[in-house]
């Protein structure tokens, strides 16, 4: 089951770390970084059903 309730402690801190990662990058570098991050996170999740549900959620 995909978790859709808040699950990140210190959401503001996470969000700011996420954006800080992009400091100084070009638009293409940022896109590439986001792609790598998605793949890293997807591997951590592993569960194919959860991943499929996550993709549907993002598409919606």
């Amino acid at each position: 089951m995909l978790i859709t309730t808040p699950n990140i402690h210190d959401a503001d801190g996470f969000y700011s770390e996420l954006l800080d990662m992009h400091d100084g990058l070009s638009e293409n570098e940022s896109k590439a970084l986001n792609a790598r991050l998605i793949l890293v996170l997807a591997n951590h999740i592993g569960d194919r059903e959860v991943l499929a549900e996550a993709m549907r959620t993002a598409l919606d």
């Binding site: 859709t4 996470f14 969000y15």
Partner: peptide
């Protein structure tokens, strides 16, 4: 974040 927050609770704590 704003797009997801409308339907999904998890994104709301990130709306600032």
């Amino acid at each position: 974040v704003l797009h997801l927050a409308e339907k999904h609770e998890f994104a709301r704590p990130m709306v600032n």
